[in-house]
Design a protein around this nucleic acid. Structure first.
Length: 697
RNA sequence: GGCGAGGUAGCUCAGGUGGUUAGAGCGUUGGAUUCAUAACCCAAAGGUCGGGGGUUCAACUCCCCCCCUCGCUACCA
C-alpha cells in the first residue's frame, strides 16, 4: 500500500489511559492488529520500532486517584503496572511500553511545546473559568458536577453526562458544584494557550484529503473529511491543574499541558527511551514509515490534530497510514467498563491459561476492520473448535502421526514421482493442484498483511491448512502404504513441507502455535522464514532424513463448561444493573423556603398548536394558551410526543421563567415533565381539565 | 437536523471502472472415509443483494427518495 520503499517503520499503538484494566475491545481495536503487523515486519527482516505506553495525565486520573484516596502518581503506577503486565502476558510484542509520567516524556513534551512556541504559533487567550475559592484552584471540566440539562442526572460532569452520554460544557450544568470541595464555584479569568488548528486546515486538506484519498481506509478517510469540512477551531492546549507536564513558560505557573497535547508525543518519548540517540531516525527521516494503530475514537487526534502538531513543530515525518478499527461489542451489547460488561484481558489469561492464540485467532477473525463487530463466547468456542482445532491443529497432528507411523518420524525423501501407475498419476495431479493453491494463499496472505487486512490474511493462513487436509484426503497415503511406500514418502515429505510453511506463516497471528509446530518439527526456521516472507512463496524448511519430534496437539476443544462461567459472569452485572436503576431514585435537593417556591409561577395551559422544530431531533415548538396570552414554548419532547398528539393537551408549565432563545426561536417558559428511570418523559397534567391559566400551588 | 461509515445466505464476511446460473468460511443436511482431537474430504439445501423509484439492452454495482445500525456534531431551561 505504501507508495514507495521505506527503510524502516515506526509503529505506534494507541496509548491506553491509565485508569482501568484492558479488555478485549482494546485488543481487537488496536493492539492485536498492530502486533500482528509488527511481527510480520520483523519476520521480513524490516527495521521496526513498535512503541506504546500508558497515558497517565489528565483530570480523570486525578479524580480517580482522589476517589481511591491515593496520589495521582500512585494511581497511575497501579494501572501502568497492571496494563504492562497484561500486554506482556498476552504477548503483545512492544519494543517498549513506556509511560507519560516519565522524566523523558516531560522533557520531550516541553521541547515540543517550546519549538512551536518559539514560532509564536500558539494563541493566548484569557477567559472566565470556574474557580473553587476554598481550594484556590481552577476547576477543569471534569471537576465540576451538576445537574444535567438534558436528562436531569444530578451528577453530570462538566464535559459530559455519563448517564445520557450528552457532551456538555461546564456552564450548561444546572447548580454547578466543585467536585473537590462541593462548593459552588465562581467564574474567574485565567489565561490559556491555544493551538491554531484552523491555520492548518488548508494544509490538512491537501495532505490528507488529496494525498491519502486512496491509501487510507474509507472509514478513516470519511471521518477526517467530515471533520475538515466542518471547519477546525483553535484548541486549548493548557489547563489549570497540578497533575501533568508544566507548561514551559515563565508566565504559565501552575498550568500544565492539556493531556491530548502531551499524549501523542508519548510515542516520541517512548522511541527516545528505546533507541537513545538513534531515535531521530524513527521520527525525522523521510525514509521512515510512520503507522498509527488506533480505535475509531482516536481518528481525529491521529489524523488531524497530531499531524498538525508535527507539521507545526516542523522537523517530524507524518503518518503514512492510520488503519483505525471500529468498535467491538460483547454478546450484542456495547462493552462497558462502568457496567462491568467486558472480558478483561487479565481475567481471560487467568481463566484460559495457555490459550492466548485462541483469543488472538477469534479476535482477528472478527476484527472490526470495516464495521463494528460482536464477540460472543459461543462464537469463540465454535471458531476455536471448528477452525483452529479441526483444521489447523488436526492437519499438523495427522501429518506428524502418519510420518511416525510409516517412517519412524524420519522425514522421507522427496523423490520425484514418476507417473507410472494410475495412482501415481493421481497423486501427481493432486500435488500440482495443492501447490498452486498454496502459492496463491501465500501471495494473498502477504498482500493482505501489507494492506492491513488481517482478517483476510488469517483466512488465507487457514486456507493453507485446508489445502493440506485436502491433499491428504485426495492422496490417501494410508492406502498407498500397502503397495507403494515411495509414493507415501513423497506425499508425507510434501505434507511436512506444508506443515513447515504453516509454522512460518502462522507466526504473526498465532505465535504460540507457530513455535509449538516448530518444536515438533525440531528444526530451525530462521532462514526459511526470512525467505518465505521476503520471497512471498513457499519454502522447504524440513530437510529429508531429519528426525522429527513427538506429535503434540496444538489446540484443544473449548468445552461448554469452559465458557459457561464466562456467560454467567456477564449476566450478573446485567441483573445488578437492572436492580440498580430500579432503585436509583434521585436524592433530595437542598431544602427551599416557601418564599423560594413562591417565586415560581407554575400554571396550566392548553396546547393550541404544535410543530416540529426544523433541524432538531428533540425540540417541539408549542403554542400554549396560558390564559393570559398565546405563547411559544420550546420543549425537548419530540422523541416522546408527535406534534399531533400534543395539540389540545393541557400542560403544566413555568410561566415566569426568563425567556431563552434556542435554535433561533425564543422559548417563553418550560413544560414540566415527569422522567422515568429509562429517561422517558411524561407530561404532567391535572387529573381533570381546568381553565387555561389556572395556577399551581 | 448536518456529516461520516455500514446494511449481501442462520453466523462472519468477499464482491476494481455496471454484463453469463451473486461467492467463501463456519453452521445445517446428506454422502464418503479412517491417518487424525466424531476431526478431515465430497455434495446439497439456503439469499426479492435494507425498501421504493429512475438511468440502461443490462444494476448488488450508477442517480434520487426513504428505513435501520454505529460514530462525530447541533439541539433538549
Amino acid at each position: 500500500m505504501s507508495k514507495r520503499d521505506f527503510k524502516r517503520t515506526t509503529v505506534t499503538a494507541a496509548l491506553p489511559y491509565a485508569n482501568g484494566p484492558l479488555h478485549i475491545g482494546h485488543m481487537a481495536g488496536a493492539y492485536l492488529p498492530a502486533d500482528t503487523y509488527v511481527r510480520y515486519l520483523r519476520l521480513k527482516g524490516d527495521d521496526v520500532a513498535f512503541v506504546c505506553g500508558s497515558d497517565e495525565h489528565g483530570v480523570a486520573i486525578t479524580l480517580g486517584a482522589k476517589k481511591e484516596g491515593v496520589t495521582p502518581q500512585a494511581f497511575v503506577d497501579k494501572y501502568h503496572a497492571l496494563m504492562k503486565q497484561a500486554f506482556a502476558d498476552f504477548g503483545i510484542s512492544f519494543d517498549i511500553y513506556s509511560r507519560t509520567s516519565s522524566a523523558i516524556h516531560r522533557e520531550t513534551s516541553q521541547d515540543f511545546f517550546r519549538k512551536i512556541d518559539a514560532q509564536k504559533l500558539f494563541v493566548e487567550d484569557t477567559s472566565d473559568q470556574f474557580y473553587d475559592e476554598q481550594e484556590g484552584i481552577f476547576l477543569a471540566d471534569r471537576y465540576i458536577v451538576g445537574t444535567c440539562p438534558n436528562c436531569g442526572h444530578d451528577r453530570a460532569y462538566g464535559d459530559q453526562c455519563e448517564k445520557c452520554g450528552t457532551s456538555l460544557s461546564p456552564r450548561q450544568l444546572i447548580n454547578p458544584r466543585s467536585a473537590v470541595s462541593g462548593n459552588a464555584p465562581v467564574l474567574k479569568p485565567t489565561k490559556h494557550w491555544y493551538f491554531p488548528l484552523d491555520r492548518f486546515e488548508g494544509w490538512l486538506k491537501e495532505w490528507l484529503l488529496e494525498g491519502h484519498r486512496h491509501d487510507w481506509k474509507t472509514n478513516v478517510y470519511g471521518q477526517c473529511k467530515s471533520w475538515l469540512e466542518q471547519g477546525l477551531q483553535p484548541r486549548s492546549i493548557t489547563r489549570d491543574l497540578d497533575w501533568g507536564i508544566p507548561v514551559p513558560r515563565e508566565d504559565a505557573k501552575g498550568k500544565v499541558l492539556y493531556v491530548w497535547f502531551d499524549a501523542p508525543i508519548g510515542y516520541i518519548s517512548a522511541t527516545k527511551e528505546l533507541k537513545g540517540a538513534d531515535w531521530e531516525k524513527y521520527w525525522k527521516d523521510p525514509d521512515t514509515r510512520l503507522v498509527h494503530f488506533i480505535g475509531k475514537d482516536n481518528i481525529v487526534f491521529h489524523c488531524i490534530i497530531f499531524p498538525a502538531m508535527l507539521k507545526a513543530e516542523g522537523s517530524f515525518i507524518l503518518p503514512d497510514n492510520v488503519p483505525a478499527n471500529e468498535f467491538l461489542n460483547l454478546e450484542g451489547d456495547k462493552i462497558s467498563t462502568s457496567r462491568n460488561h467486558a472480558v478483561w484481558l487479565h481475567e481471560y489469561l487467568r481463566d484460559f491459561p495457555g490459550r492466548r492464540d485462541e483469543l488472538r485467532y477469534v479476535l482477528t477473525s472478527i476484527s472490526p476492520e470495516t464495521k463494528d463487530a460482536d464477540f460472543t463466547w459461543k462464537d469463540y468456542q465454535q471458531k476455536v473448535n471448528s477452525e483452529l482445532v479441526a483444521i489447523l491443529g488436526n492437519f499438523v497432528n495427522r501429518v506428524m502421526v502418519l510420518t511416525h507411523k510409516y517412517f519412524e518420524g524420519r522425514v522421507p525423501p522427496a523423490e520425484e514421482l514418476k507417473g507410472t501407475t494410475d495412482k501415481r498419476k493421481k497423486v501427481l495431479a493432486v500435488y500440482q493442484q495443492a501447490h498452486r493453491d498454496l502459492d496463491q494463499s501465500v501471495a494473498a496472505l502477504i498482500d493482505s498483511l501489507e494492506n492491513f487486512r488481517f482478517r483476510e490474511a488469517q483466512f488465507q493462513l487457514m486456507n493453507m491448512a485446508r489445502t493440506g487436509n485436502k491433499f491428504l484426503a485426495d492422496t490417501e497415503p494410508w492406502k498407498l502404504a500397502k503397495e507403494d511406500m515411495d509414493a507415501v514418502g513423497a506425499i508425507l515429505n510434501y505434507a511436512l513441507m506444508v506443515v513447515g510453511n504453516l509454522a512460518i506463516a502462522s507466526a504473526p497471528f498465532l505465535p504460540d502455535g507457530s513455535e509449538a509446530i516448530r518444536q515438533q518439527l525440531g528444526v530451525d526456521l530462521t532462514t526459511a522464514s526470512r525467505q518465505f516472507w521476503t520471497g512471498k512463496k513457499l519454502v522447504e524448511p524440513v530437510p529429508a532424513g531429519h528426525q522429527l519430534g513427538q506429535p503434540v496437539l496444538l489446540y484443544k476443544n473449548v468445552e461448554d463448561a469452559d465458557i459457561q462461567p464466562q456467560l454467567e459472569r456477564l449476566q450478573k452485572p446485567k441483573i445488578a444493573n437492572v436492580e440498580a436503576t430500579a432503585n436509583s431514585v434521585k436524592p433530595l435537593k437542598p431544602t427551599v423556603t416557601i418564599d423560594d417556591f413562591g417565586k415560581l409561577d407554575i400554571r396550566i395551559g392548553t396546547v393550541t398548536a404544535a410543530e416540529k422544530m426544523e433541524k432538531s431531533d428533540k425540540l417541539l415548538k408549542l403554542t400554549v394558551n396560558s390564559g393570559l396570552d398565546q405563547r411559544t414554548i420550546l420543549s425537548g419532547i419530540a422523541k416522546q410526543y408527535t406534534p399531533e398528539q400534543m395539540v389540545g393537551k393541557q400542560v403544566t408549565f413555568i410561566a415566569n421563567l426568563a425567556p431563552r432563545k434556542m435554535m433561533g426561536i425564543e422559548s417563553q417558559g418550560m413544560i414540566l415533565m415527569a422522567e422515568d428511570q429509562d429517561g422517558k418523559l411524561r407530561l404532567l397534567q391535572p387529573n381533570e381539565a381546568v381553565n387555561p391559566g389556572a395556577s399551581v400551588s
